[in-house]
C-alpha cells in the first residue's frame, strides 16, 4: 500500500479544508484528484509531504510524514508554477541540478530539454517550464510523485507528453487537477474532492450526476467517449 488515510482532517484556523478523508492508494497507481477551487486538493498534497499536520491516521510509503521526514527522500513534488519565485536568474541546468541532484540524460532527452540547458528558466514558455519541473522530479527517482496542476498554462502537445511520461514511470503518481480530461484515459482511479471525499474510483464509477452536483454545486454534462470513458464537459469557469 502506498498511501493509507483514515479520518484525515485539516483546518486553516476555523476554516475546514479537509474533512474525514478515508482512502487507500496502491503502489504504482496513477490517481487524479479533482475538485473546484478551495476544495482542499493542494492541502491534501501538503499533508502527504508533511508540510501540514492533519488530524487522523496517515501512512505514506509505510511512514507517517508528520513524524518521519525520511519518507521525503522517496517523494518528488511538482508545485504549481505560480508558486515558484522567478526573480532568481537560474538556468535550466541549475534548476535541474540544485541540491546535488545528478542530471539524467535519458530524462532530458525524453522531455526534449537537452538544448535548453543554458537558457534561463524564467524565459521559457509555460510548457517548457513544466517539463523542466517534471524532469527535476523524475531525476530524484521517486517512489511517490505528486503533481499540483501540471497542465495549467501548458499547450496540448506538452500535456500529451506529460501524460505519456506519467503512464510510463515506475512510481505511484497523484495528480491534482481542475480538468481531468487530458489525463482521463491514463489514470487508474479518480478522486473527487470538495473538502470531503465525494467519490473515488474509475471514471464510470465517479462521474455521475449526483457526484458532480456535490462537487461543483452545479450541473456538469457528462458524455461517454468511444473508448467507454465517462468525461465531464467543463465550461471555461471549471477548466
Amino acid at each position: 500500500m502506498a498511501i493509507k488515510a483514515k479520518n484525515l482532517s485539516y483546518s486553516y484556523g476555523k476554516k475546514k479544508a479537509l474533512e474525514n478523508l478515508t482512502f487507500e492508494i496502491n503502489e504504482g497507481e496513477l490517481i487524479a484528484v479533482l475538485g473546484p477551487n478551495g476544495a482542499g486538493k493542494t492541502t491534501l498534497l501538503k499533508c502527504l509531504i508533511g508540510s501540514l499536520k492533519p488530524k487522523g491516521e496517515l501512512s505514506v510509503l509505510g511512514m507517517d510524514p508528520r513524524k518521519d521526514p525520511r519518507v521525503l527522500e522517496k517523494i518528488s513534488y511538482v508545485p504549481q508554477r505560480s508558486s515558484l519565485n522567478l526573480d532568481l536568474p537560474l538556468s535550466v541546468e541549475k534548476v535541474l541540478s540544485m541540491n546535488n541532484v545528478e542530471l539524467n540524460l535519458e530524462i532530458l532527452k525524453e522531455l526534449e530539454l537537452e538544448d535548453k540547458m543554458k537558457m534561463l528558466f524564467r524565459e521559457l514558455s509555460g510548457g517548457s517550464q513544466q517539463r523542466v519541473l517534471i524532469a527535476r522530479a523524475l531525476m530524484r527517482e521517486p517512489e511517490l510523485l505528486l503533481l499540483d496542476e501540471p497542465f495549467n498554462g501548458v499547450d496540448l502537445p506538452t500535456q500529451e507528453k506529460i501524460v505519456e511520461i506519467l503512464e510510463k514511470i515506475n512510481a505511484t503518481v497523484i495528480v491534482v487537477l481542475h480538468n481531468v480530461n487530458p489525463i482521463l484515459h491514463a489514470v487508474d482511479r479518480i478522486m473527487l474532492l470538495n473538502k470531503e471525499l465525494i467519490a473515488f474510483g474509475s471514471s464510470g464509477d465517479v462521474f455521475k450526476r449526483e457526484n458532480m452536483l456535490k462537487l461543483y454545486k452545479t450541473e456538469i454534462p457528462l458524455i461517454t467517449c468511444e473508448e467507454g470513458f465517462v468525461h465531464p464537459l467543463y465550461s471555461d469557469h471549471h477548466g
Binding site: 518528488s76 508558486s83 532568481l88 540544485m98
Partner: peptide, 18 residues
C-alpha cells in the same frame, strides 16, 4: 548556498528536499 537557492526558488517544494 544550494539549499538557500532551492528554498528561494521553490519555497513550497523545498520541504521534499529536506
Amino acid at each position: 548556498y544550494e539549499k538557500l537557492l532551492l528554498f528561494l526558488f521553490d519555497p513550497e517544494g523545498a520541504r521534499v528536499s529536506g
